[in-house]
């Protein structure tokens, strides 16, 4: 009977040094089958190093990593057969057309006569009309899309996206994320690094945060936002006139009070505390925290931590 692999990705105590510089520091992460895991961090946090180790581009100093239950170093070829990588840097292929590049890429994965799938990818990525152009004739955005098509020619089970939308316009970003969602619905596991945190919030089931090579958070996206942000409550009043029992120091600006409450706290409790008369209450709006705030707060907390 085949072993059922729940975790597509299992990384334990992964460590990478470049001379005296530690790029990754004992990182342990797992990704479940069919999830979208976001890997966030400031520039130089170790995200690309992490992805490069998973794809075999660089070897770890120590630690282990397995994909689909197979050690990435011992079963390198088997593992690579199921992984697609969209690298961060745009690649050129001076001598060949888009279609040729995708044919070659299919061949590297042992697939012959892959034109039907190549045509599908070209269509999804709006590259069909450019398929016979040399890669050097393409714009930056088209080359980015080509990288995505290259990563998908062999229908991988795990897609590694290393800042795939860096420098890409909004339309293309939306097209790409729709495509990623479709792939994910087909049970493709996705590991994504990006600096667009709003997109990460919408897409990712879980978020891992790296800082100076160390994993400082790994949590469900919504849990992470809840734990690291407050809710902003705006109370619109009928007038700016103070009321009896109004707490000292409470500021009213443009007939509005702004307060922050923790995610676990009830609105009723806040209103009781403020003692606002019912006839003064005009409207209440509540803004939930977002991933960007959570990310900034997390890094702030981490920087303030005694080393």
């Amino acid at each position: 009977m085949n072993k059922i692999v729940k975790n597509i990705l299992e990384v334990n105590q992964l460590h990478k040094n470049y001379g005296d510089f530690t790029a990754l520091n004992e990182v342990s992460i797992s990704a479940r089958k069919g999830e979208i895991l976001g890997l966030l961090g400031p520039n130089g946090a170790g995200k690309t190093t992490f992805i490069s180790i998973l794809t075999g581009l660089i070897a770890p100093t120590r630690g282990s990593a397995s994909l689909f239950g197979l050690d990435i170093q011992k079963h390198a070829l088997k593992v690579r057969q199921q992984v697609g990588l969209v690298p961060q840097e745009i690649v050129n292929h001076g001598f060949f057309t888009i279609n040729q590049v995708l044919e070659f890429q299919s061949g590297y994965y042992g697939i012959r006569n892959n034109q039907k799938h190549i045509d599908y990818l070209l269509e999804r990525l709006a590259l069909t009309e450019h398929k016979n152009k040399l890669v050097s004739e393409l714009s930056g955005g088209m080359r980015r899309r080509l990288l995505i098509a290259k990563a998908l020619v062999h229908s991988p089970s795990l897609l590694l996206l290393d800042e795939p939308t860096a420098g890409v316009d909004v339309d293309l970003r939306n097209t790409l994320w729709d495509f990623v969602r479709d792939l994910n619905r087909q049970n493709v596991t996705v590991l994504l690094t990006t600096h667009y945190l709003q997109e990460a919030e919408e897409l990712c089931d879980r978020i891992a945060v790296l800082h100076h090579g160390t994993l400082i958070s790994l949590d469900n996206t919504q849990e992470m936002i809840k734990n690291l942000t407050d809710r902003e409550v705006k109370i619109k009043l009928a007038s700016s006139t103070p009321w009896p029992g109004m707490p000292a120091g409470l500021e009213i600006e443009d007939k509005t009070i702004k307060c922050r409450i923790a995610h676990g706290d009830a609105i009723g409790k806040l209103l009781t505390k403020l003692k606002i008369p019912m006839e003064q209450l005009e409207d209440i709006t509540i803004s939930e925290g977002n991933l960007e705030e959570a990310f900034v707060n997390l890094l702030q907390q981490h920087r303030n931590k005694p080393q």
Binding site: T55, G56, L77, K78, Q81, V91, H93, Q105, Y108
Partner: peptide
Amino acid sequence: ISKFHGDFQDLKIAPLS
């Protein structure tokens, strides 16, 4: 030239022996 273009790493990522 392939290293200059950046596509030489395709061979390392692909399951080529």
